[in-house]
Every structure is written in structure tokens, then in C-alpha cells.
Design a protein around this nucleic acid. Sequence first.
RNA 1: GGCCCCAUCGUCUAAUCCGGUUAGGACACCGGGUUUUCAUCCCGGCAAUAGGGGUUCAAAUCCCCUUGGGGUCACCA
Length: 521
Amino acid sequence: MSTVRTRFAPSPTGYMHIGGMRTALFNWLWARHNGGQFILRIDDTDQQRNIDAAIGPILGAFRWLGLDWDEGVEVGGPHGPYFQSQRGELYRAAAARLLDQGLAYLCYSTPEEIAADRAAAEAEKRQYVHLRRSLDLTESQLQQYQEENRPHVVRFLMPRDEMIVIDDLIRGRVEFDPNLISDPVIMRADNTPLYNFATVIDDAHAEISHVIRAEEHLSNTPIQLRIHEALGHTPPLFAHVPYVAAPGTKEKLSKRKLDKYRNNPQFKRLFDRADEVFPKIGLEGSAGLDPVMVEYYERMGYLPEAMVNALARLGWSLDDKTEIMSRQTIIEHFTLDRVIKSPAGLDPDKLLSYQVHWMGELSGVEKLDACLPYLTAAGYVNDPPDQAVRQFVGRLIAALADRLKVFSDIVDYDEFFVADDALQYDEKAFEKRITKTDDAVELLTKFRSVLETVEPFDAANLETALKAFVEEQSTNMGRIIHALRIAVTGKPAGPGMFDCLELLGRERCVKRIALALARVS
RNA sequence: GGCCCCAUCGUCUAAUCCGGUUAGGACACCGGGUUUUCAUCCCGGCAAUAGGGGUUCAAAUCCCCUUGGGGUCACCA
């Protein structure tokens, strides 16, 4: 039994797409499930200028999600280098071999000639297939061209004799007619390789056992299969996973359609949230980080556990009911035969429900450490936060409980950090609960005096005090508690009222009530 | 357009390979309960085999056609 070796080979584009991440995850999962290796290679056949900036966010996404790689960029390994741009010799040698054996040929057809051939075919309503004109060149012509240094590419000579059969691990048996496939260019005129060629060399060289990739590569597979054979490789097994669709659609999720997604009801909420949260923490908003990127979720404060759980469930299931799965559980059960064939739309609501679950597994300290950076970035607390801040935020997080769904939610609770006279009020709620509730002012005024004497000033004791107060005034909780909440926090919703009071402390509560009272008149 | 892939609740999916389920679960939504608010939590409800032909005692499941969606046809990856 040979080892399972999978790979993910992103091009250095500077961002990590959600769909690509899901494909990477499946590769990683399959390797881990089988105790094999996962390789991270960079497909930069086009020379890249700022490679570090271009791969940084990609590696960052892998690290965030905890997808480690056994060989590849940064970690090295026995099959390096792991940048295609540094493997030129390998490709040139392979091309030379193919040329020697007559399995590839120099193609001198100019782009104009090819365009003309294509136009002619179209005019006759015939399917265009590359004409192999250069095969008809005489020995002397070839020699002459070579002496002239005439520009040429190398084309792989597609064997036309039999149907190409792919036994795809996900899609089953798929057949292609080679007579319909043009001889692919494998080396450009500048002697650099094309993807279809480079990937074959690299996969074989790295002894990749399973090529798990997006289904748009299915039509490249017959070519790659034949190139593998021509080179004498045992081809890897192929598994083509469906693409990830935009929420509620069957359309492939694409960064080029961002503007359209702003009108997608589910995505719209994510964009809006980005515009709300990111500027507060010194980022650009949805124009800089959008929900097609993995980084969006990281910056927003989603948990890697939630993301992995959600991504794994996109096109794969464990059984008929298991939804919540840890990384270990997923690794244990992940198999390619349970990957579905049809595209799946990312569902932000479902992602959030996983998030709520995994957030619930965290300890207070873990939440604290994750929330603090948001508060310092927003300027709500000192940087670095001192012990008093840590303690206060820790208590706030405890009071927030399940209300904190993603870490960045913490910046919504500015009322616990701003100066009393800078408190923002929800005007509608203020009006309803204070201005237009006839005895609110009176009750607030009286209860303020009570607050001045409550000792100790903690939630339990405050609750007792308020109950006694309500009884004494022959009123009910509802008459005062809402008014109190608005007066003290400015908002109609939030943590338990008594927790809010305790958190703020006597002095601030008393002052805020006075401030609110002053607003009425 | 050629070639290839796909098709179950609004969404993610189970059951499809190997025909027999009241077509199951989750998210969302709606209703109820818990809660001082919000959030959580608990209970209940709504809701699907794209259409048409076959084969069969029996079809979501096998076959064919139609329709719809998607991918791909580069000196991109």
C-alpha cells in the first residue's frame, strides 16, 4: 500500500479564496485521514514580482485554520524547490525528452495562422482542433527555421488512437474523445512551461498519489493523463470536487462578482457587518476584506473550528445527521466517496450556527485573549491592556455569554468603555422607555438614591434592592428596568441588567442616570 | 456552438452505487415555552425527489429524452 500524498498548489495572488480553501481542506483531510503527507507548492509559472506579499495571506489562511503541510514552501522537503518558477530545468529537461521521443514537437504556427484556422473551422461549423501544420515541415525547412531562430512553442502530440478514460474518485468514469482535443502547448516561446505541463512534472516528481482539485480542471485531466503516460509516470488518482457556489445560487463563487454579491441577501449581511466593524478597528471595511476571502472570517473573529466544520460540510457529510464535528472527527471519517458531485453554496447562516457552537466550547480566558486585540484596535482600552482592563473585560465577556458570537462583536459594547458624557443613546428606545413612560423619570430619580447606598454593589445585591424598591413603590419591574437599562447603557438590549450595573460600578451608574434625566428636560 | 459535469425542502445534506423509508437530520423561517431586554436554550410547525417516457410487483434510486444550471474549449492557472 503506497502512501497517500496530496497537494495544494495555489498561484500567488495575494488572497485566499473560500472555494480554494475548501479544496485545500479536502486535500489535507484526505492526507491526514490516511496518515499520509500534504504538500503546499506554489504555482507561479508566471514570474511574480513580490512573492512574499502574494503568498503571505495564503499561508496565513492555512495557519489560521490549522492546516499544516509536511513539505513545501517554508518547510522545505525532499522534492523541492516548491516554487514552479525555480523548477525551470526540470520542465525543460522533460520537454526535451518528449521532443527526442517524438511525443512532442516544435510548433512554428503563428498566432495569426492559428486564428485563421480557427475562423475557417467556425465558418464551416466544424469544431476547431489544432492542425499540426508544423508536423508537415520538411527537414530543411525545420533546419532553416532553427537557424533563423524563429519563435516557436513546444506542443505535446496528443495521441489520437483511443478514447481517454478517467476513473474519477468522485465523478466516476468519464470519457473524452482525443480527436477533439488540440495539441496543448507545453512550453512557451520563452521556454517557460504551461500549467498543464508543469503540474504533471511536479505531481510526478513529488509522488502525489491523489490529485484533488476543483471540477473546472476535469477537462484538463485527459491532457495531463496522456502527458503522464508519455513521460512514463504512473499517473496519480484524480478526484474532482464541485466548485463552491455563492450563497443561495448555483453560480461559482468568484471574487469578480463581488458587486453582485452585495445584493445577495445572505452575503449582504456580511458586507454590512464588515463596513460596520472593520473601520472601528482601523481596517478598510468590505472594500478591503470581503466574504469571498478566508481572511475576512479570520479578521471578523470567527473560530477556525467553525470554519473548518462549515467548509468540511460543503459537499461532504459524515452521515445522515452529524453536523457538529471537531477537526479530529472530520479527519477520522473523511473519505472521498462521500464527497457530493453537485456544487454547494456557502451558507453564512449555517457558518454562524457552527460558530455559536464552537464559541460555546471556549473558556473565558480564551475569549478574553481573542477579544482584547479588537478593543485595543478600537482604542477602547489601553495597549497593552493592564491587569485591571483584563479583569474588567473578562467580567464583561462572562456577562455577555452567548451574545458574543464572533470575537469582533465585542466592539458593539462600547457603552462599557466610553466616558459617561460620550454615551450614545438609542433615541427611539430612549423616547419609548423614558420620555414617554410617564413615571420613568420619577422612578429613575428615586432609584438613583437607592443605588447610592447599595452595598456591596454587585448583581445579586442590586437585584434584591431593585425588587424591594419595586415593591415599596407598588409598581412592577417592567416600569423601571427598561428605563434603567437605557439610562445606563443607552441601548435597549444587552447583558443582564444587574450585570451591567455591577460592571459599570456605582459612580458611573449614578452619573449616567443623572445624565439621562437631564436629557429629558 | 462542441465536449464534459450536475439536478432531493428556501439552504447544506441523508437515502441513489446494491430499487422496497410515513423521503431523515441540520440551518433559515413561523408558532409556543424559559428570560427584566437581547442572545442562548427547550418544544412544536412549515417545507423537497425539475418534467416526460420507459423497465419493474415496486423507481428519488436503473435506462432514454426534455428542461434547467455549471464547467471548459489560451503561448491563464
